[in-house]
């Protein structure tokens, strides 16, 4: 019983570390997709004046969460809701909400300007967190491992 307890206490921080590291990866992927979509939208509207639903259909998204958001926007428009699980800060969630709420409501020029703005905003954040991601990723796993090991030593 004691052994099982020690194993669990040791493994739990490690799992937490791994999950936390995954969040870093999810955040990078999410921002990458958001920036890429804003850029894609801006180009399609500026050069071809294409309709948004067609643009969403033709956009291949590597992030599942962002893909679901786009699907929601396509199907529910104004009533599109953001789930709590989006791996970004409240500040960027608000920015994304503002961006999505403009789609389908404004003129071509306004939409292009706004898409360009959000593409830059999400793009610069993407570059920033992508650069910091390997260290952050590694450190979260290492911390998880260290805490686990420490607990194991303490209990042994």
């Amino acid at each position: 019983m004691k052994i099982i307890g020690i194993v669990l206490l040791t493994v739990a921080p490690l799992i937490y570390g791994l999950r936390s590291a995954k969040t870093v990866r999810d955040e990078v992927r999410f921002f990458g997709c958001a920036a890429e979509f804003a850029r894609h939208l801006q180009k399609c509207v500026e050069y071809e004046n294409r309709d948004t639903n067609g643009i969403i259909d033709s956009f291949s998204c590597s992030d599942e969460t962002f893909g679901k958001l786009l699907e929601n926007l396509r199907n529910n428009g104004y009533y599109c809701e953001f789930p709590e699980t989006i791996p970004i800060s409240a500040e960027y969630k608000k920015a994304l909400g503002e961006f999505f709420s403009m789609i389908g409501k404004v003129s071509r020029k306004e939409l292009c300007d706004s898409a360009r703005y959000y593409s830059d905003l999400f793009g610069s954040e993407y570059e920033k967190i992508k650069k910091a991601a390997p260290d952050k990723y590694k450190s979260r796993i290492v911390i998880g491992l260290a805490v686990g090991a420490m607990l194991a030593i303490l209990f042994i």
Binding site: N49, D51, G54, R74, Y78, G104, S107
Partner: peptide, 20 residues
């Protein structure tokens, strides 16, 4: 107004810019 905007978005495939 929200109902109307929602309807316009749906009828224009979320693309007021294309249908303007």
């Amino acid at each position: 107004e929200e109902d109307l905007i929602h309807a316009v978005r749906a009828f224009t495939r979320n693309s007021f810019h294309t249908y303007m």
